[in-house]
Amino acid sequence: MSEITIHDIATKLESQSNELKELRKAMGATTDAPTSMQIEYTKEIKSKIFDQAPYFRFLESKGCVQSASTSQVGFYKENNGSVAQFIAEDDDIPEATATTYTEETAKMATLIQPIDISMMAEMGNNVVDLIQREIDKGFINVKNMADSALLQGDGTNNSFKGFTSQVTDNKVDLKGEEI
């Protein structure tokens, strides 16, 4: 049996004191926090869902994916007031129009896959791990829905609009005339 020294006890007390300070700090932050908090996923869950979603991975590779530390996220939409244009050598330079910026914000949303397996089904099956099977199917469903929402929107009234609905399909020939 190993002997405990005063140094060991002092080290343990200091460690516990630091843990209590961190716990107090966390409890203080929680009391002031809004009722809705951002969910933080473990690396294992992220690797099974979002990191395997092909369109999400494409956006991430282009630097279009950023972390958020709040439930309210947004960006500024730039509306360029002036456009480049050709003028004749003796024409006056056209007036410039200031660029405007519109703030677009929205609340964060969580995509979930509920799982329901009865105790009877779980206990009466020796061949298939039903819980693991449902979890695996849920990960695949969430991954596919995340890509679909990024590309096409999620189909609800307050939906994420999706990439394809934001791209205009106007075509212009080389002379600048609409087709």
Rank of each mutant, 00 (worst) to 15 (best):
D116E: 15
F163W: 14
D51N: 08
S15Q: 10
I115K: 07
Y76I: 05
Q85N: 12
I49H: 02
S82Q: 01
V73R: 02
L150F: 03
N18R: 05
F75C: 09
L130K: 02
Q113F: 10
N125T: 08
M123F: 14
N18K: 03
Y76S: 08
M145E: 07
V83F: 12
I39Q: 11
I179D: 08
Q52T: 04
A84H: 10
F50S: 10
K143M: 02
V142L: 07
K161Q: 12
T11G: 01
T102D: 14
F58S: 08
I140H: 09
T30H: 11
M123I: 13
T105A: 13
M1Q: 08
K161S: 11
P34E: 07
D92F: 10
I135D: 03
G81K: 06
D147G: 03
A106G: 12
L23E: 07
S69A: 14
E89P: 00
Y101T: 01
Y76C: 11
K143L: 02
K107A: 03
D129K: 05
T31Q: 08
T11R: 00
N80A: 09
A106W: 06
E78L: 15
I6D: 06
N170T: 09
Q85F: 04
P114E: 07
C64N: 15
V65T: 11
V172C: 06
Q166F: 07
D91G: 05
G153I: 01
E60N: 15
Q166H: 05
D147V: 00
T99H: 12
M108F: 07
L130T: 01
T105N: 11
T5S: 13
T100F: 08
Q52N: 10
P54G: 05
S82L: 05
A109N: 12
Q132E: 12
M145G: 01
V142A: 03
G153A: 04
M108H: 08
S47N: 15
G124M: 06
K46C: 09
A146T: 11
D90E: 14
T30M: 10
R133D: 13
N18V: 02
S2V: 06
G81M: 08
L130H: 04
Q52V: 04
N157S: 14
I115D: 09
L174W: 11
T164K: 14
E95L: 10
Q166N: 13
V142G: 03
